[in-house]
């Protein structure tokens, strides 16, 4: 979603994005936020510049925001990190909140099951090296 019109989105696909990913290969709707009205409500509209800054929101199947990240324009996102976070939130949701994913978790790594027995014992279950890939 940007403050560009959907007509500009079409021209961007036709003239540039199609050369990156192939024609007709954008798999999601490209949304238009005229006047930054939606960005304002999400807290990412920069009134001085008149644009939405680089905000990314993870919204769960109940419509609840589980995470967000907002960057100033010159630095791009890490798509793999976004997907990792979605996978982590899906694990938590799949366990109905019984499980938690510690720092550095990615699919295949151990999850934690919070409870009285884990208090003071995380050091036995999780090592600092696990924070890194």
């Amino acid at each position: 979603m940007s403050t560009d019109s959907m007509f500009v989105h079409k021209m961007w696909v036709d003239h540039e994005l199609s050369k990156m990913v192939g024609a007709g290969a954008i798999p999601f709707p490209m949304l238009s936020d005229g006047g930054g009205r939606v960005g304002s409500v999400y807290g990412v509209y920069d009134q001085d510049a008149g644009v939405d800054v680089r905000g990314r929101f993870i919204i769960d199947p109940d419509g609840v925001i589980q995470g967000f990240e907002v960057l100033t324009p010159p630095v791009g996102r890490n798509v793999a990190e976004t997907l990792r976070q979605v996978q982590a939130f899906q694990v938590v949701r799949g366990s109905a909140g019984a499980q938690a994913t510690p720092s550095g978790w990615r699919p295949g790594k151990a999850v934690l099951t919070p409870g009285p027995g884990l208090v003071g014992n995380v050091w036995q279950e999780w090592k600092v090296g696990m924070a890194f890939d």
Partner: peptide, 28 residues
């Protein structure tokens, strides 16, 4: 929000995606 999707101009509402995971990205 109005959108461009699969070669067509359309309109989309966030709540239509209830039941799915959504990644909403803003960019300048």
């Amino acid at each position: 929000a109005p959108c461009y999707y699969e070669g067509k101009f359309a309109s989309v509402q966030l709540s239509e995606y209830l039941g799915k995971w959504v990644i909403l990205c803003f960019y300048p």
